[in-house]
Nucleic acid binder design. Structure first.
Length: 822
DNA sequence: AATATGGTCATTTTT
DNA sequence: TGACCATATT
């Protein structure tokens, strides 16, 4: 008889109605190809799904989960599904819900980091950590390391915050903590000893602040499970089916975590669980063990692009060895892209040796050719993209179905300049994030200081923000007092009177301490809430934030400032308040710590709003896992893709090729490859060469609107032979020297497109309240004279549709376009 | 303690 | 180029 247990159900368990019905869940396998069907229906200890790009792996995963539940082989609460981003998790949850309805409640579908935070907050006590621990992001890490390096004078030995940060991160991803490192350190090497001291201090400071960095979230969870088998057993018992997406991008710590979670629970521990009232009935095998959870991993080693973050391709390559009895299913049929796109992808990736051959194919036909374009400059390239996007849009492609990818965030500048001018609705995903702005970090630091009073970093940040006359000297005085009296920084602030400082400074410190105390008091739940273990009666996050930014004077300081940028900053803080309101509304009963966790763990891709009507701009890394009708891959140049920095790293060029492969395979119907002949690196204009990867795509797949060879021929500075025959000589591209570029630009006719593209400046014009209406004639610095045909939009976003006499139809932002009314 | 100024610096991808 | 830091000035 099959017993089914719902660990979250107080009733605990019940007998299944009957053995699993034949045919139950068959609607979940209808319409799947044989491999997909096998992956959904496989039952056993371990399953590896090798899923090529676009092969419907999300479909397989969601159907597999739904199938497990519908056939009554698992309760939702016994499922743990790990995805790469929160957005992917949300999407998976939605799709399972669509298949199952309400019976999907109670599953854990989240990222590695979110799942670990959830476990760690619950079990914080075992680790001697506050359950309100702060999560430090890389900027926080850097701040702390900067201080440590300065105090140790380690910079003289060549240590930089960034260097130490990446070294610490690597160690933690390998599950090496300070003591492990200390044991293996070469004591004759002063470099190593200094690093050990940095690592020690760093670890100590985080501990004192009750803070964890991103890598700790995973590593500490593994330590927790290893040190406390009973705690581990709770989760091992609970999760009977564990599914991991993007397995090729897991690092050693994440791999170990999965290993711990899929361990069987030994009989003696089962007995202990039983004694403590944990339900184990129906879960044990005949030896009294709870068998290890069934593990499903999905991955594609061709899409491994996070080696720099410790991702270990061996995790997927050696899966069968690590999990004996594993079944392997290969998904090669692609349901996303046209054959031309897939052929290009296949051709590129086949240049990576040391991989299992895998060829993507589709039954849907060749589709359009890939479009290639070589601009003279990055602006020229951007203009081509903007024009093509407009053309696609006129053909009925929605803006949200279009994406522009690039290797480095710095490449957004030229794209944004042109897009703004062309009045193209776009959104940069990731990059300089909202939460990285100084004023937002300030406001967040107030919240953190309230949630985790031990967090000295947050306290120091707000100590003199807004300016209240507390300088470095005062800060040190408080820190010293805290140390001498064995108090926390926060407690020392309450004793400001004993510091022997001036009345003004003392008052400022006390005032700040009071504001924080008031906010903390607002967060205490009512007696009823405390009794019930809920957050009932506690103030909402938004109310606490409003209290803090108002009483601390932060918002007033920004509003009353004479710095014009502070107006925007104040608006940003208001936006943060609005976001906390949304959070309160969407998560009733959630705590401040819940909010802070959510903010800490947002990924770039999480920001994408599928409903928005904008073109998405993002890095190739962020693009992983996404798909668009039309994709623009930009800056396909040597030095950029592959990136210069990757050249020296082992496996670097191969990983860059995978990055290119990932980009190509995001496109459903239209793929554009573009590059520029010259690129501004920092102030300086540098010559760019076409990427080696371009040559790996068969000629006949690309329709060059302007090939590298053609672009070179324009100035007549290249040997004739290079442009004698187009196609065979495509790779003559690239200017020989800076001189060539200079000559090139003076020889061109002043009216060509590239001429004005070069003139685009970084400064933003402001036409004030210039008003235009249909029929007006205007003059544009680049396009010449034209007539306004229509005006749309509101306020600063008013757009003039202009028919230029020579340059054709254009859309211009009235406020900033370089135009004048005639 | 707060601001202004000039000089130096590095520039990959991110949960 | 622009972010960041150290120094000089108020």
């Amino acid at each position: 008889m099959t017993l089914i247990l719902d660990p979250d159900d107080p009733a605990g368990w019940r007998e299944a109605d009957a053995p699993v019905r034949d045919g139950a869940g068959s609607r979940l396998t209808d319409g799947l190809n044989p491999q997909q069907k096998a992956a959904v229906e496989y039952r056993g200890p371990a399953l590896l799904i090798v899923a090529g790009a676009g092969s419907g792996k999300t479909r397989v995963l969601t159907h597999r989960i739904a199938h497990l539940i519908e056939t009554r082989e698992a309760w939702p609460s016994q499922i743990l599904a790990i995805t790469f981003t929160n957005k992917a998790a949300a999407e998976m949850r939605e799709r399972v819900q669509a298949l199952l309805g309400d019976s999907a409640q109670g599953m854990w579908i989240s990222t590695f980091h979110s799942a670990c935070v959830r476990i760690l907050r619950r079990e914080a006590e075992s680790l001697g950590l506050s359950s309100t621990f702060t999560i430090y992001d890389s900027a926080d890490q850097r701040t702390i390391l900067k201080r440590i390096i300065k105090e140790l004078n380690a910079d003289t030995m060549g240590f930089t915050p960034a260097g130490a940060q990446s070294k610490i991160s690597k160690l933690k991803n390998e599950l090496a903590d300070v003591e492990t490192y200390a044991r293996n350190v070469n004591t004759n090497d002063p470099q190593e000893l200094t690093f050990l001291e940095i690592f020690r201090q760093y670890t100590r400071r985080l501990r004192e602040a009750s803070a964890l960095d991103f890598d700790d979230l995973i590593a500490e969870t593994v330590y927790l499970f290893r040190a406390f088998p009973k705690v581990a057993a709770l989760y091992q018992r609970r999760f009977r089916h564990i599914l991991v997406d993007e397995y090729q991008d897991t690092n050693h710590a994440q791999y170990s975590l999965i290993h711990e979670l899929t361990r069987p629970v030994e009989p003696e521990i089962v007995a202990e669980l039983d004694q403590h009232g944990v339900l184990v009935r129906g879960l044990t095998d005949r030896n009294g063990r709870i068998p290890g959870a069934s593990l499903t991993v999905v991955g594609d080693s061709d899409q491994s692009i996070y080696a720099f973050r410790g991702a270990d391709i061996r995790n997927i390559a050696e899966f069968e060895r690590d999990f004996p009895g594993a079944e392997v299913v290969l998904l090669e049929q692609n349901y996303r892209s046209t054959q031309n796109i897939l052929s290009a992808a296949n051709a590129v990736i086949s240049n990576n040796f040391d991989r299992k051959d895998k060829k993507l194919w589709t039954a849907d036909g060749d589709g359009d050719k890939i479009v290639g374009y070589t601009g003279y400059t990055a602006h020229d390239e951007a203009q081509f993209i903007a024009d093509e996007i407009e053309a696609l849009h006129r053909d009925g492609v929605a803006y949200r179905d279009i994406a522009v990818f690039y290797r480095t965030n710095a490449q957004t500048r030229a794209l944004e300049e042109i897009f703004v001018r062309s009045a193209l609705p776009y959104r940069v995903v990731g990059g300089t994030k909202f939460y990285e702005r100084a004023e937002i970090k300030d406001a967040m630091a107030y919240l953190i200081a309230v949630a985790n009073p031990l967090d000295e970093l947050a306290l120091r940040r707000i100590l003199n923000t807004p300016k209240r006359g507390i300088g470095p000297a005062t800060e040190t005085a408080i820190a010293n007092y805290a140390e001498q009296n064995e108090l926390s920084f926060r407690q020392a602030m309450r004793h400001a009177g004993s510091l022997g400082l001036g009345p003004k400074v003392t008052g400022a410190i006390t005032a700040l301490a009071d504001v924080l105390d008031e906010a903390a008091a607002m967060l205490v739940p009512s007696q009823a809430g405390i009794d019930a273990g809920t957050n009932e009666g506690a103030a909402k996050v938004s109310d606490v934030l409003v209290h803090l930014v108002q009483r601390s004077g932060l918002i007033d300081a920004l509003r009353n400032s004479r710095d014009p940028q502070d107006e925007t900053r104040a608006e940003n803080v208001d936006e943060l308040v609005a976001q906390t309101r949304d959070f309160d509304r969407e998560n009733p009963g959630a705590t401040l710590v819940d909010f802070l966790t959510q903010v800490s763990l947002v990924a770039a891709a999480d920001e994408i709003d599928d409903e928005s009507g904008t073109v998405s701009l993002m890095t190739l890394h962020t693009a992983k896992g996404l798909e668009y009708h039309a994709v623009f891959l930009t800056g396909i140049e040597e030095g950029l893709l592959p990136h210069q920095m990757s050249a020296s790293e082992p496996g670097g060029p191969a990983e860059e090729r995978r990055l290119f492969y990932v980009g190509i395979t995001r496109a459903r119907k239209r793929l554009y490859l573009s590059l520029a002949m010259s690129r501004a690196q920092f102030g300086e204009v540098a010559v760019a060469m076409p990427s080696r990867y371009l040559q790996e795509i068969p000629d006949e797949l690309i329709d060059w609107k302007q090939s590298p060879g053609m672009a070179t021929s324009r100035g007549g500075t290249q040997p004739r032979a290079l442009n004698a025959r187009r196609g065979s000589e495509r790779w003559g591209g690239g200017f020989e020297s800076r001189r060539d570029l200079d000559r090139f630009s003076v020889t061109r006719a002043p009216t060509t497109k590239t001429e004005w593209a070069n003139k685009v400046t970084g400064t933003v014009r402001d036409n004030g309240d210039l008003t235009l209406e249909a029929g007006d004639r205007i003059r544009h610095t680049d396009f010449g004279e034209g007539r306004v045909t229509q005006v749309t939009g509101e306020g600063t976003k008013r757009i003039a549709h202009v028919a230029f006499d020579t340059a054709g139809q254009k859309k211009l932002l009235i406020k900033i376009a370089p135009i004048e009314k005639l």
